[in-house]
Write a protein that binds this DNA or RNA. Sequence first.
RNA 1: GGCCCCAUGGUCUAGAGGCCUAGGACACCACUCUUUCAAGGUGGUAACCCGGGUUCGAAUCCCGGUGGGGUCACCA
Length: 490
Amino acid sequence: MAQVRVRFAPSPTGSLHVGGARTALFNWLFARHHGGRMVLRIEDTDRSRSREESARGILEGMRWLELDWDEGPERGGDYGPYYQSQRLPVYREYLHRLEEAGAVYPCYCTPEELAARREEARRAGRPPRYDGRCRALSRQERSDREGRGIEPVLRLRVPAAGATVVDDLIRGSVSFENAVLDDFILWKSDGMPTYNFACVVDDAAMRISHVVRAEEHLSNTPKQLLLYAVLGEEPPRFAHVPMILAPDRSKLSKRHGATSLEEFRQQGFLPQAMVNYLALLGWSPDGVTEKMDRGFMVAHFDLGRVTHNAAVYDVQKLTWLNAIYLREMAVAALARAVTPFLRRAGLIPEELAGPQQEYLERVVGLLRERAHTLEELAALADYFFRPVEGYDEKGVRKHFRGEGAAELLAAVRERLAGAEEFTAAALEAAFSDLAAARGVPRGALIHPVRLAVTGRTMGPGLFELLELLGRERVLDRLARAQRWLEENVV
RNA sequence: GGCCCCAUGGUCUAGAGGCCUAGGACACCACUCUUUCAAGGUGGUAACCCGGGUUCGAAUCCCGGUGGGGUCACCA
């Protein structure tokens, strides 16, 4: 295969959503697999909808997933600029070629007229296509309209006969009758190219070898192929990847919960898990492997193994993968990753001193296997950073009930106050002793103490937890729980 | 509505005519481990959309139907 050059070409009209991210990932995997180049191009030809801020968000999302690009914004490259809004001269040049060839003509129909005709056609059950009425306007008719101050759009003369065949790397060959295509617009009246034109010009000018994009573009492809033909350019290979659908099988939108990468990030998903999950949506290396690192994905990625059917994304599976990555991460890295979540929850200050950093790592080490997301991890950690503010209701009924509870906590407290060492091993021995002395099972001690010290009925092993909390806080919390029990008859 | 794509459990998928008594994973349900929770282990429920062909033989090939999706913008 000649030099592989792929591109991811988002339009900056919103944040990077899962579908876009998956397309970016497939492009990236394909490029890396073939030792090719990944081009990032921002398609901002819609002046009213494009936002600088969206473009930044998209780049940020790509960086978060560690999908690097070889050419594009902030990196430059030999085929720039990489913002379509800055490529007007290029489009004009290609447009000129089409004009020379007599392949385009001006159309003076207003958007309102066109919309009205479309609506009418739809009501009459006819396909809503442009009828070509401006195709054969005389010079006189044209200058009349220009005289009235109408800025025309430019349309392509599409042949009425024949068929255009898309040879798709994923779907095989797909044929479209040219008769169903209409004379689509290449150049808008505001002086900007349309998507279909800009896209073809750029892919040709940037020497893109493979266009890997979402299936919604499949029906645009014959139009683009027609353009390559009149331009005399060799078209790239196409690969249309299936759509990602919401759980109700409709097109993904905001009302389906998290759909933008940024939201997943804020919910505490890790980029490694995200990439792994996205790769599994529509592709599988062998039907068995679920967890894979980048190296594996790059080594095995194959467009021929991309599925043909749309996929529904499933947060539960993402969550499962995320938990695996959470557990496998180095504690230091994990501590760094949860930090923003702990701050947001008001559990830690802006700056952490050295010993606090070490403490945080130990906390994280204790809780990591109980959390599925960073957000959840932060929530589970609250009692390590602030006093217990209340006791779990069910826990109270179960473990704080009866006359003996306060007395029992007092006994434990006394015992722990006198313990020589405050280590998990020593604490465990102390609990065993005390339980034996009182003739009760250890659980009878463990559960009330956990509730007293953490406010919860669940969590890490009690002894590790007590050691980490330290004698002072443990004794203090036991005393507080005793007082609470005296004030609240259960 | 026209055109195009697609069709294996609730979800993601393996399957390129006999290896399929349809495999894996998430989720779910049991049991197990256990100081709780989580993780882990074991087991279980659950699918080839329907109808015709082709073939000795079809989840796999063909046709039709049905269903879902996409697209028909001076959006990309």
